[in-house]
Design a protein around this nucleic acid. Structure first.
Lengths: 71, 71
DNA sequence: TCGAAAAGTGCATTTTATTGCTCTTTTTAA
DNA sequence: TTAAAAAGAGCAATAAAATGCACTTTTCGA
């Protein structure tokens, strides 16, 4: 996934769950500012930060072999 | 994936490809020290750093819904 | 329409990741 | 076995992430 897709995934997942940035930040234990920056494409979160956010949303960070077929 | 699994995945993939930390660091454009710290479990790389490393190894960082079934 | 909630941004500070240098330990091949 | 390559770690400097506060803009429901 490209950087923008990771952001999009987090943002959409949060919206589907109907959670505000403020609530997600609190539940994930990260600063609201950090989440705002990430979602607005201004950030470069650490792996720990991304994992904390993903976790609250019922998601996980993973690594997979790139599929050349899949455009 | 847990943090340690992400490390393991990167490390094993690098070894399967028979690439040294030095070479991978150079190809990925990250400091050798950064890669060493990550692989030895001492680091907390930024998303950009992890993407650069993964990319060289033919992998990508992704987010997926956690599967409760899968142990 | 319009007021409140949510999201986005500038600024400053603190914390921490990144990096290079050097050295020690471990692994590997001759 | 052992010498060289590769991996791991201490230290210090620099760059950048994380954070809070205050303010602006956008979104959305009454």
């Amino acid at each position: 996934m490209h950087y923008s897709d990771l952001i999009k995934t987090i943002k959409e997942r949060r919206e589907v769950l109907n959670v505000t940035q403020k609530t997600l930040a609190e539940l994930a234990g990260v600063g609201l500012r950090t989440l705002k920056q990430f979602e607005s494409g201004k950030g470069n979160p650490t792996l720990h930060t991304l994992q904390k956010i993903s976790g609250v949303l019922g998601m996980e960070v993973c690594l997979k072999i790139r599929n050349l077929e899949a455009k």
